[in-house]
Design a protein around this nucleic acid. Structure first.
Lengths: 171, 171
DNA sequence: GGTTATATGATATATTATAACTTATAAAAA
DNA sequence: TTTTTATAAGTTATAATATATCATATAACC
């Protein structure tokens, strides 16, 4: 394995079962609320609820799965309700859309502007979000060499996480 | 601007109007046919036609747009016809799917195995495919640092191509 | 030629997302 | 504080993308 260098972060690591999930969610919601307050964005009850649902899945979740969960408390919810909330958060960097899964995940670091970088385990479906500046820079460097002004970059890597590849080796 | 180094390629550059398109298509089809022959894959008339249509758009094209074009000569074509052909080519690396656009492009270099790296111009909608080893390596390095076995990586960069950003500067 | 595998045709339906119009709520201006 | 304006949410309908399934045809193999 390589080593982590400064400037690199694993925003959301692979450890779905090894943390206090409830605390994880409430911290994310609090951070989002703070972020919205600072930026004059309205953090409505509906939006809060949608964000909580996204975080409580703690992995990518689809819009319609989200809608089902939302309907538990809001029986009348319809697709636009969910999509509007998702769009709002995506626009402000609080949720990322994973294109290759048509699914959504909470962003662990909304303050720092970044494109999405995801490691997606094809076995356990868990997703780790990165913020790897070496990758981002390599992208910008090449875009620049072609006179292309890069505004938003998305990196989605499919493979096997350490837990899942370990399972095969061991079992 | 930076410089291009060895090992780096621009597979499909931004130059939608500056090349012999007919030749470009026929070369791609010929390359695909050769590739299929070498690998024991059946390059049927239907598949050939779908691949031609993808290449003739010379930019990302959606499945249903493709279906419409296919129906000009095959009035009975239905979605599965298009999706099967697309899936076949994607599986064998002859077509890439651009996730953020739900669209498909011909791959200019099927022999060399690679994930998709795309620069997508938000103004003129043109797409350049890269095969930048520095980017790919940066991704693999970080994945490796996390014990993640990267199998397939996709990089999609949205921004403005040189022609479009030039137009603004000049006009 | 008969058997098997592969490809395509055809019908139906699933999944994901948005348009457009209405009502409610909040923020700003008068 | 009423009016105005902007923003958010409710509601209905439909668009856009993709797949499941079963039937038929074609190619490859024995």
């Amino acid at each position: 394995m390589g080593r982590l260098k400064k400037d690199d972060k694993v925003i959301v690591p692979f450890q779905p079962d090894r943390h206090d999930h409830g605390q994880c969610i409430s911290e994310a919601i609090a951070a989002a609320e703070t972020y919205c307050k600072k930026n004059g964005l309205s953090f409505t009850p509906l939006r809060r609820q949608v964000l909580e649902l996204v975080w409580s899945s703690h992995g990518p979740i689809g819009a319609y799965e989200l809608l089902d969960k939302l309907r538990v408390s809001r029986g009348n919810a319809e697709p636009p309700t969910v999509y509007r909330a998702l769009d709002f958060f995506i626009e402000h960097g609080l949720i990322h859309r994973i294109e290759s899964l048509n699914a959504y995940v909470g962003c662990g670091d909304p303050a720092r502007r970044h494109g999405g970088q995801f490691l997606i385990c094809r076995d356990c479906k868990s997703v780790a979000e990165l913020d790897d500046i070496a990758i981002a820079r390599a992208v910008i460097r090449r875009a620049d060499a072609l006179g292309f002004e890069a505004e938003q970059q998305t990196v989605e890597v499919v493979g096997r996480c350490s837990a899942c590849s370990g399972e095969i080796k061991n079992g």
